[in-house]
Design a protein around this nucleic acid. Structure first.
Lengths: 113, 113
DNA sequence: AAGCTATATAACTATTCGGTTATATATAGG
DNA sequence: CCTATATATAACCGAATAGTTATATAGCTT
């Protein structure tokens, strides 16, 4: 359908792939190069570069420059935003049910009277 | 690559689609039927049914039975799990940087001595 | 039982995605 | 300047995705 891009979209798309989540997890140990990732993931270097581009476009990682290397580091701002978005989402959904529960409880009370 | 299914995967895959997020958002107003969704989303009924199947398989919604209708309601448990997962993820990533900062600070101190 | 309504399923299509290999580009070092 | 190394890009491929239309199924209602 291609709906409006709400900013959270790229984040969830990036997180939907297990390889990309694993790459992010690896970054908890510090900066890595492309080849650092290609080896343990038994994946070709171009495949890693593609995943990194997705992560970079989503603002989840940034790239540096160290000679010919392009070290990758995690950025948590967007992840924090996504977390906040999810929390708000849950709250709204649960809020509704609380209201529904309250409504049902009220109806029962009214019936009893 | 098809990595190990870690449970969080289906949740993020489901959330990666803007239509499915919109469906979930719509559920904050309460239960809806398939046709309730098909109309405002200007999408065919089978398309909605497919999205609902994805959401249901991810445990993000459950279906009821009301005559010929199959009302949909949101389930927040998995969303809560995803939120917790994201929070932990952020914490690990930021924790690393804190350690790195501490390390750099320590190195500077040592040099100064 | 017949018909109406809501949903599900099947079959198909176009596009996107995640991977590959081959090649191009850029930077460091002899 | 030449070579080696790290990364990026291009071209391609198969599988998955998101949509469609047509049809089947299931439950009311009369």
């Amino acid at each position: 359908m291609k709906m409006a891009f709400d900013g959270i979209d790229a984040t969830f798309v990036a997180l939907a792939d297990p390889t990309r989540r694993a790459i992010l997890a690896r970054l908890a140990q510090g900066e890595v190069t492309v080849m650092d990732l290609a080896e343990p993931f038994s994946m070709s270097q171009p495949a890693i570069s593609k995943h990194l581009k997705v992560l970079e476009n989503a603002g989840l990682v940034t790239r540096g420059r160290d000679g010919t290397r392009r070290p990758v580091r995690a950025e948590t701002k967007r992840l924090r935003q996504a977390t906040a978005w999810l929390e708000d989402f849950c709250a709204r959904l649960e809020g509704n049910y609380q209201r529904l529960d309250a409504l049902l409880a009220e109806m029962k009370t009214v019936q009893k009277d």
